[in-house]
Design a protein around this nucleic acid. Structure first.
Lengths: 349, 349
DNA sequence: TGTTAGCACTCGAAACAAAGGAGTGCTAAC
DNA sequence: GTTAGCACTCCTTTGTTTCGAGTGCTAACA
């Protein structure tokens, strides 16, 4: 990650100027423009020479002869890693307290996606936290109808699931009570891995004639834990990509928007982000670095937030490579800490 | 809804031919083409005369002089109402049994949207059933943590909701039991409108020192009932609109896709459909007839399905006005009855 | 040796022109 | 009432030209 030794101070300045200018305008930038843009007073000819070097080194390229230069992926990477300054830009709309304190996680996340999109003009996504579904906190069976009972299952992290179980028999109140006792005393606080076949057999035995119900309940538990795809992903501003000509031709637009609708690819992205070691940092994927194929022409910036009890989620921004990285990263950081704060500091009301 | 008396048999034939041809090609259709297309043997000149009449009557129009004719909204309307034949087209992909029998409603609906999109090449939406949230079937409070209890609330139609309630005090088991008894004996089977302020006061009184908890529970009930926006809408194939040039310019595409992402407008559409008297029929909105402003250039076809216990949902298709109405309506009908069947016949497993 | 001025050259974008052709409306004859 | 014929319209396509931004290179300069 050390700077290429062949990069003089001046080259860096020029590269930075090129990129910044390109971020603003989206147009290839020529030597003429740069003479005004940089503080170093150089003629266009000199700058041309430097640009030729930079092109040889692979940091910039020309879309065609006789056009100005555009940063390459490598150029962007260098920029993000080294050249970028921390912009102390503030987020508009609801200065501090971006997020209203709603107690529905879902709504907060939806809103987060929206705020993010509104603040950046890119497409955004927020994943619901992936809970560490490995401890069973509580189970409660209740009779709803003569032939239906509802099983409420609370997992670590206060994730509540329920499932209706059809039973042939009508359970008496006391039997239900007994079953609840049985289940809770045996299973509460237990990690999933600890629930073995032997344990199940023993449970069923103890349940006696109601072993069938116990079977159903355990099935429900198993199912709930296995449902992989229940990670929700909220998106917003997918149509923002139309604002960037380089992404808004039919082909690209269709692919990207499809990814946003189907969400599978976004889920992969989340998985990837969460797997990465550099958690609680911010990750920037430029062009081909992106784990999602359909976003080869984009840049993707993601951050991880934490909800306590090991529950983590991802917020992310997808936009053109000429993205305002500084602003985006700043905004992500803010939102990230807001989310962290909302849920960790004060589980208020 | 009677046919305009000025429409001769021949004019109808020609109109139908124009529309069918336009549906296929998407190109304005000229008199020359029609000579081959219709069975009546007429010269192009004659047809031109008839076309001029049809244009005067408002059924077709020219995008510009010296172009062929295109059906107007009025023309499409006539076609859908009278001219269209029932195409006995079968749905591809999984002939009968379009939908796998999953017990998760959500998944079935998601899949329904996908199947629909795959079969039609239009954008599709499926709304989750709107339950008649007007009776309280069951309430269960359970202690989860020292300071948290979870309230499980079952509404008519077996809609289960839960909410975590933070309590300052730790409730003893028997108190919890008493509260449960109190709540259930008082509230079960009660319609929402019956829960008056007086009743609430009485309840709280009876709860004694735990009146606060009761208050929270009732708040939760109120909230759950009021959450309007909890109608889920699943979409698929939004990007299909790119297949139709008349909808895929940036402006339109952006609007339509936004509507699909934000979903609010789709929700309005659903509400509108459900409100309409002609339930269990199929509704066709052509162009301006659409209740959703952003879809003025589209046609929208919707159908209502029923899940028993008065729970209804909507499936819909959004596409260009030159939509294959016959196929779409056929497909919608099939899916509609599949959904009806799955949930009404056999609430299996 | 690094910098700069000058110049010929490239190549896309925009403007313009011409050709082609599908389709029309109208008239006159059948 | 139907049809052939014709002049006319106007969009689409294609080609040509022009324009200018930007380049690379060379030669002169400090």
């Amino acid at each position: 990650m050390a700077v290429d030794s062949s990069l003089s101070e001046r080259k860096l300045t020029i590269l930075k100027a090129i990129i910044q200018n390109y971020l603003e305008t989206g147009e290839p930038v020529g030597s003429r423009t740069l003479t005004k843009y940089t503080d170093l007073n150089l003629s266009s000819a000199t700058i041309r020479n430097e640009m030729a070097d930079l092109e040889d080194l692979g940091y910039i390229f020309q879309p065609h002869t006789s056009a100005g230069r555009i940063p390459s992926d490598k150029g962007y990477r260098l920029y993000v890693d080294m050249l970028m300054e921390d912009k102390e830009q503030e987020i508009t709309e609801r200065e501090n307290g971006l997020l209203e304190k709603t107690d529905k996680v879902e709504q907060v996340l939806r809103q987060a996606a929206k705020v993010l999109a509104a603040n950046t003009n890119y497409a955004t996504m927020v994943s619901s936290p992936v809970n560490n579904r490995n401890t069973l906190k509580f189970i409660q069976l209740s009779q709803v109808d003569t032939e239906q009972i509802v099983a409420v299952i609370v997992l670590g992290g206060n994730v509540i699931k329920n499932k209706i179980i059809e039973v042939g028999e009508t359970l008496s109140n006391e039997n239900l009570l007994k079953l609840n006792m049985l289940l809770n005393t045996t299973l509460n606080g237990m990690s999933i891995d600890q629930i073995t076949l032997g344990l199940i057999a023993r449970l069923k035995e103890q349940a006696g004639i109601h072993s069938e119900v116990v079977g159903h309940v355990l099935d429900a538990v198993a199912e709930i834990i296995h449902v992989e795809d229940d990670m929700e992903i909220y998106t917003s501003g997918a149509t923002n990509i139309f604002k960037y000509p380089e992404l808004s031709d039919k082909q690209s637009a269709q692919e990207i928007i499809s990814a946003f609708e189907e969400k599978q690819q976004l889920a992969d992205l989340v998985t990837e982000t969460l797997a990465s070691e550099d958690n609680h940092g911010i990750q920037v994927y430029i062009g081909d670095e992106t784990p999602v194929k359909t976003m080869r022409d984009c840049s993707v910036v993601t951050a991880t937030y934490e909800l306590g009890e090991g529950m983590k989620g991802t917020i992310g921004i997808i936009g053109p490579k000429r993205m305002d990285y500084e602003h985006v990263m700043k905004t992500l950081k803010t939102l990230q800490s807001e989310l962290d704060a909302i849920y960790n500091k004060e589980p208020k009301e």
